[in-house]
Design a protein around this nucleic acid. Structure first.
Lengths: 200, 200
DNA sequence: CCACAAAGCGGACTGTAGTCCTATTGCTGG
DNA sequence: CCAGCAATAGGACTACAGTCCGCTTTGTGG
């Protein structure tokens, strides 16, 4: 990443947030977190969140767009941590290590993040068709992986290969694999693929 | 594949299909095909299909389960062709060629099938969460790939690797890649990954 | 040919995501 | 402090997937 700053939903909005808007945003995020924790992500409807937060449905949707946007907002801090570690943390996740090592470290770290928040990430990726690829964070992961792949495997079509690799890290795919074979084997298999691709 | 028969939705039901049921099944499939062709898969609701077919909604859902089931039924013949070619067609897609060649041929053929029917396959895979992995055909592709991977790369965790590979062939992922980079680059990238994995 | 059980039918009903439009609220310059 | 206005709030409304259950059709055994 030749990066400048973390890509993602703006923690502080463009210009200035009106006081009532800020209040309601907090209320919604708190309510959503509470409901998701108590009942599970899949069992909570947007109506329920609006009711629990004491705001109207319109407010909820205008602010977060859709379920996917709400999930992204809830994941924001964890995601930013990971992005920061990639941009400026210690190697091999951060800059300084050889590309293949960085790729392996990224996969390890990303799978940790993913499995820690599987339901939320799944919601952010599957709320609407194509949601996964519209999220700002996806573009971040993609660029990171593409740049490292280009370095590790000169001449390859790194942009497309990065999408291929990331397909295996989709919440639904990784979730199914973990359920069927356990986390360790998923991590190992992803490491195998990265190894095969990045150390030709 | 040490296979015996094609996996998928039963063309002829278990015991015997009542006359009215058969009639309605045909009416629904015809109506759905017509509507999908005219308006596009995403713009057609289940209500519209039921109305166009002149049957009740209950009928539609009892017979096909959900949107995913309807898509599978519509894809059935093309899918069975591909499965048959894999099980008993000429090499390298069919038996007889070395595993890496068969894997490459499978990816080529599958991408052809996928891109020819992208919207329908996407519908079959994303109609409900996890739909992709519940479809009988997915299990077929998975076993096929796993068996070939096990042969090409002894000692590797072929079952998990097969899922990883197939993740790149998900309709949504492949569709996004094609849109962004074109079909040729997607095919090439998938071939690259298979090559890296299967010819260590 | 008829009676009758079971398979199948259909559309009213429920729950949910997401939209829209009007009333309200908070900010800003005077 | 106040007036004006743009941003925001809220909930009624739409459209859709999927369920349920009383009614109808079909095949069968007498």
């Amino acid at each position: 990443m030749d990066g400048r700053e973390v890509i993602g939903p703006q923690p502080g909005p463009p210009k200035r947030e009106r006081a009532d808007a800020a209040r309601n945003r907090e209320k919604v995020l708190k309510a959503a977190a509470r409901l998701f924790r108590d009942k599970g992500v899949d069992a909570v409807s947007m109506d329920a969140i609006a009711a629990e937060a004491g705001v109207g449905k319109g407010t909820l949707f205008r602010r977060f767009g859709d379920k996917s946007g709400l999930a992204v907002a809830l994941l924001d801090s964890r995601e930013s941590e990971l992005q920061a570690a990639i941009l400026s943390g210690p190697p091999p996740l951060g800059p300084g290590a050889p590309a293949p090592d960085r790729l392996a470290a990224f996969a390890e770290a990303y799978l940790g993040y993913l499995f820690d928040h599987l339901d939320l990430v799944r919601m952010s990726e599957t709320a609407s068709p194509g949601a996964r690829y519209r999220i700002g964070a996806y573009r971040f992961w993609h660029r990171h992986v593409a740049i490292l792949l280009a370095e590790a495997r000169p001449g390859a079509d790194a942009d497309v290969l990065a999408h291929v690799l990331l397909a295996a890290l989709a919440a639904e795919a990784a979730g199914v694999m973990r359920e069927e074979y356990g986390e360790a084997r998923v991590r190992a298999a992803v490491a195998t693929v990265i190894d095969a691709l990045a150390r030709p």
